[in-house]
Write a protein that binds this DNA or RNA. Structure first.
Length: 233
DNA sequence: CCGAAGATTGCCT
DNA sequence: GGCAATCTTCGGG
């Protein structure tokens, strides 16, 4: 396969690797290794599952309604990390694609921890009592937790070899071993098959269709009328 | 300003 | 399989 041969010949990932549509970049990221080095040590994760988001043209993208403070990094140069906070407790990490000015990114959904398993486990010990190794980075928020990724990494350059957060070239993955299907948990464009994963890889997260969240209980009282003494805070 | 949903996860029945 | 946790972000009034 042409793309596979080209990729295998790269000694280092050039920034041009990301200067393409995210749908093309996504499958090529499978087998790549994202590593984060801190004072606590290094954790490396081989990517086994990713999803492409196509910016303003993609109803499921955070950039669908244009540029905001949160998605600003997606409009920046390719090869940088777009990290966002969600559900009040989780971080998710993308790698920016396309040239500056065009919002596009690939969500890193899952991987296999190849280095620093003890550190990854320690970072996730609060979340799961006895996680299997294969579960340490199985899911986008778990992957960030295992790697120690947070808000401070939004905008980090993963191409710069001196950066603590870098992406290493892939261990070649046979094209036949790549599967694709709809993206997980998205409410719009739910039928678009822009999720890619390594077939048969146990660290791939389970598919879930979008589930509308149950509405919170209606507030009996609003605004200044509060203060009947029955509520905390 | 306020309300509502969210590219999730883990615990509970 | 259902649902709570927890808070940021964004769009609408």
């Amino acid at each position: 396969m042409r793309q596979l041969d080209q990729r295998a010949s790269w000694q280092l990932l050039p920034r041009e690797f990301f200067e393409r549509p995210s749908v093309e970049v996504a499958p090529d990221l499978l087998g790549c290794v994202i590593s984060h080095s801190t004072a606590a040590g290094l954790v490396a994760v081989m990517l086994v599952e990713v999803e492409a988001y196509a910016g303003e043209a993609d109803p499921a993208s955070h950039a669908f309604r244009g540029r905001t403070a949160r998605n600003a990094v997606m409009y920046g140069p390719p090869g940088h990390a777009y990290v966002y906070f969600t559900y009040g407790m989780h971080f998710c990490m993308n790698l920016v694609c396309q040239a500056t000015g065009r919002a596009s990114a690939v969500l890193l959904r899952a991987g296999r921890v190849t280095e620093g398993v003890p550190l990854a486990r320690a970072r996730r010990s609060g979340a799961a009592r006895h996680p299997r190794d294969v579960d340490l980075a199985r899911g986008p928020a778990r992957l960030c937790e295992a790697l120690g990724i947070d808000r401070s990494h939004d905008g980090a350059d993963v191409i710069d070899p001196s950066s603590p957060l870098v992406l290493a070239p892939p261990t070649p993955v046979l094209a036949d071993g790549i599967s694709r299907g709809p993206r997980v948990g998205v409410s719009r464009a739910a039928d678009v098959a822009w999720r890619f994963w390594i077939a048969g890889e146990p660290a791939v997260s389970p598919y879930r269709a979008h589930t509308p969240r149950k509405r919170a209980v209606a507030k009996p009282v609003t605004g200044r009328a509060r203060g009947d003494g029955t509520m905390h805070q």
